[in-house]
Design a protein around this nucleic acid. Sequence first.
DNA 1: AGCGCACATGAGCTTTTGCTCATATTTTAG
DNA 2: CTAAAATATGAGCAAAAGCTCATGTGCGCT
Lengths: 214, 214
Amino acid sequence: MCATRIPTKVKPGRRKRLDPRKPPTQSRAAETVNAVIEAAARILERNGFEGYTTNAIAERAGVSIGSLYQYFPGKEAVTVALIERECALLLADVIKADSIVDYRDAVNHLIHSAVAHQMRRPRLARLLDLEESRLPIRPRIRPASDAIHETVLRILSRSDSPYRGNRKEAVLDVFAIAKGMVDASGEREETDAHQLEKRVRRAIYGYLGMRSVR
Amino acid sequence: MCATRIPTKVKPGRRKRLDPRKPPTQSRAAETVNAVIEAAARILERNGFEGYTTNAIAERAGVSIGSLYQYFPGKEAVTVALIERECALLLADVIKADSIVDYRDAVNHLIHSAVAHQMRRPRLARLLDLEESRLPIRPRIRPASDAIHETVLRILSRSDSPYRGNRKEAVLDVFAIAKGMVDASGEREETDAHQLEKRVRRAIYGYLGMRSVR
DNA sequence: AGCGCACATGAGCTTTTGCTCATATTTTAG
DNA sequence: CTAAAATATGAGCAAAAGCTCATGTGCGCT
């Protein structure tokens, strides 16, 4: 019963929240949240952006659409959560470079992390990169993203680094090179990570002015 | 009068055409087509994907929505036409590398073309790159795209090229490097093309095993 | 002049998709 | 055991966007 629906007036200027609505407190709620995020990942992997809708995500997750919206204010929030998750995974690996003493080995580890991360779920990684640059989502993803950048910056700033240029710029460029090559490789469905890694090393060594080892 | 609308049954499997519907024969029609393409470019440049709709494109072009659909079977077809146009522009510049005798100069020209192309309308170029990899549009864009790749391949295959690896692979990698760096640079709204060009050269020289000039 | 075809128009229909809310179920706490 | 809080459900609304078609206008040709 009850009255007809009051039209939802949304002021055009109003920004949509991208953070989860309620932090889940019970474990079943946490499961729901995870199921939703993983479902989103699987849909992206299988069908790309085609059919990447909230209803489809909820269905695939085996939860109702209402539940999805209980924890995420909108579709983009799900994507952001997914990006955060993947980003955290990458960070966990990247950060190990700090404990590698040899400069060259540390750089190699960074490159390896990037390539391995993209090769784990290539299509997903590539599509998330696209989404990340398409949406102005930055704020929410920043923490993890910044931590990664800072790690790379730390490596490039070591006393035994031969690099003498603008280091912050170098971090961004190195990222751009790796991302560019690795995404392109994923797009044409290459599978040989080792082979790709060698090529990325060539480009980055060249950029950083490091001599290649024969 | 006449019956109620017969619901347009579209089989899910049916592919949508991406090529223009009718080739315009009169000059006013050609003008319409151009206006639509340029309107699409301007909307992408100004507002990004937000509001990039067929209705908006038609309105901005100063033509009716019906006219748009007379020449383009759908929104994506407009995007494809726009990409083709930009791609042709790039090709026209890239192809000049063939007549540059010195190998290093030729490579530099290629890099310069790529950077200049992206700097001309940075946001547009970047968004089109995104669309290009997001949509499975390849078939229509292939001709121009292939011609560009072949030019690069020709340069890398010259007898005085020191590069000894898999050349087709190198073409793709060089593209990936340039595109990655240049898109990233556009994203953070850099404006110094010359500066960027130098950095791209470092990476590509490194990849190709060319010595940098001091 | 006048016929025919290319071109142009835009109201409005269909589809798609994001999202809400009234209600039901489960869990936790006292 | 019971009440309250957390969680789950899904029919269905609203908005946005894609697209059609009946109709009108202008251009070229004989």
